[in-house]
Design a protein around this nucleic acid. Structure first.
Lengths: 352, 352
DNA sequence: CTCGGGCATGTGCACGTTCACATGCCGCGT
DNA sequence: ACGCGGCATGTGAACGTGCACATGCCCGAG
């Protein structure tokens, strides 16, 4: 880490008129260019009726004075902040992080800023506070990446009065809105195991409260039902490799299964760890399927069969959808994003 | 994903005076409370000379009208945005993401906002643009998490005239500033391998341009030198598991080493993948040490010996340092953050 | 020639807040 | 009794920008 502080005190701008320490305003530019402040404003806003010569002159003066539009002033008068807020939990996870990044890029393209507020606890108060924090910054819209049922409830209770998008991608809500088909993805994974010949399949699910966890679980159960394979109750985890490991150890004490479908890649990793530690092999003794396809999944040992979902695309569409509402256009974005089964080496027919 | 748009058109606020669609201002509050707008302003700024009864009344009216201070107006007149910008590359990686999160929390605590701008390319133009973007939002300070030499150069060339902190943690710059001792961490890892009895040790480094990669490489070379172990030239990677995998395959064609120190955990994972694929064992045939201690590292197979660095702490200190400069206090934060060697199962004495 | 209309530009105000200064009041020292 | 200082509050201006409206000009139709 390294720090840089500008001199500040003796800025010693020599002949420049502005002087007062404040940055040049459109009025300064106007004076130097010999036009009115409004003309400068028009240049900024690309007003159609402007003589080219005038426009050029103003632009030159702007460059010369190093003029930068004052966002606060603009926001004040237009009552638009051109800022959207992102509320997120677990922003250090691969999925959310990718989405946030995509959101940020998409927003920047539309000349919006992104204000992130990540919250550690999912308690109602923490949420309320984070939300209030964002709203008070007068964001124009909100993206909520906190895919837990209780968060969604808390949000609707708090009656946010600005447009918001929640990134709960079950794939079963109305399809006028983009989302990743979690249920379909889970069915893909489950079907893959069944088609390999597995009948004793466990599901290591995500936390009870999480919408995506629920959707994947549902996909699992649906597919098992559709194929008439008897099912055992899913185990509820917390997404962490740590949990996957301990769950795996526990499960192996009984070992009445030949395959596990884990609700995300991290837990699958922990699972594989536990299986190896017990002296068993993947996929020889147990097949494992994950979900997400994090970049590392291809290099797990064995490389993980998993379901890929495009977080970045989801983030982009979220912003598109939100901005479209903001700007008044109502062209519908639609279509669910189809996840994709990536078959690697962690699955094989059951031994017999 | 799910979208919510407020009615907007027929908001139908019943008797409220404000009406006009605009949010209530301090003048509205003042009118209702029967005081001047300045008194309301004083309540907001916790001015000392205010009668308790007055203050109370104003606060009640604020609550009643759902008054929210207008950030833009305040920023306009004070010329302070209470916003800091974060410029980052690869924000989807564990390290940067953790730091960003910590930065965001620390900033929020100090009632600052965080504006993130992540940049994919490290080309000078992309950097200039991202930087300009942030500066134009009139951020008061900048944290730059883009630990590449060329970024640092580009930044200093662009002559940013606001305070900024670059998160380049070599551990050798002046110690009045917090940073993680990368060199020390790398020496720890290297010494561990040497003490186990390894003599033929390779180093899979990060990209040439990255300051941290350079520091770790230097730590490796320093320690090897100090212990008088002959060294081969490090291999330059790109931090990805993918690269680690291909590098590993290449290296195994010669196989004149018994241990590898990888500059991060992801590459170590790829390395292990390649080693396993070649039918060799870790740590039996090759010992591997990583760097970072990402949460998954404990569940790699075998669990990875690595060097833990506290990204969150680094982020916090960064903000502390920046804000301290901003607010004028100049109490020095100091002390480098010591990384810690975490010995797991991927290292053992060389076979013989 | 006159008048209307569009183009290029200017004028003044509004946005919501803080700052500098002004005001009235009360109590205390002389 | 008078004045002075500090407290509680009020008044007006400023911050930088965009909007509504006004202005002057030129060109073409009648």
């Amino acid at each position: 880490m390294n720090v840089h502080m500008p001199e500040g005190a003796d800025r010693s701008v020599p002949t420049e008129a502005a002087g007062r320490g404040r940055a040049p305003s459109i009025r300064d530019v106007a004076r130097v260019a010999g036009v009115s402040h409004q003309t400068v404003s028009r240049v900024l806003n690309e007003h159609p009726s402007l003589r080219d010569s005038t426009k050029q002159r103003v632009l030159e003066v702007m460059e010369e004075l190093q003029y930068r539009p004052n966002r606060a002033a603009r926001a004040l008068v237009t009552a638009r902040s051109r800022t959207i807020g992102v509320l997120t939990t677990r922003s250090d996870q691969y999925g959310p992080a990718s989405s946030i990044r995509a959101i940020e890029e998409a927003a920047r393209e539309a000349e919006y800023l992104v204000l992130t507020s990540s919250v550690t606890s999912t308690g109602r108060d923490a949420l309320r506070e984070a939300l209030a924090h964002l709203v008070e910054q007068s964001v124009e819209g909100l993206v909520i990446i906190a895919p837990q049922q209780r968060v969604v409830e808390a949000i609707s209770e708090l009656s946010v009065d600005i447009p918001y998008v929640t990134m709960q991608s079950t794939g079963l809500l109305d399809d006028t809105v983009p989302s990743v088909d979690q249920i379909g993805g889970a069915r893909l994974a489950t079907r893959h195991l069944i088609e390999l010949g597995h009948r004793d399949i466990y599901h290591l699910a995500g936390p009870q409260d999480w919408i995506e966890a629920e959707a994947r679980m549902r996909g699992f159960l649906d597919e098992m039902g559709a194929q008439e394979v008897p099912t055992t109750a899913p185990i509820l985890g917390d997404w962490s490799a740590e949990f996957g490991y301990y769950a795996g150890r526990e499960m192996l004490r009984i070992r009445d299964f030949t395959a596990i479908f884990s609700s995300n890649d991290q837990m699958a990793l922990g699972l594989i760890h536990a299986i190896h530690e017990a002296g068993l092999s993947v996929p020889g003794d147990v097949s494992v399927v994950g979900f997400d396809d994090i970049p590392e999944a291809a290099h797990f040992w064995p490389p993980l069969t998993t379901v890929r979902q495009d977080f970045a695309e989801l983030g982009r569409r979220c912003i598109a959808r939100l901005l479209e509402g903001l700007t008044g256009d109502s062209e519908r974005y639609s279509g669910i994003i189809a996840p994709e089964l990536v078959v690697r080496k962690s699955t094989a027919p059951p031994r017999r």
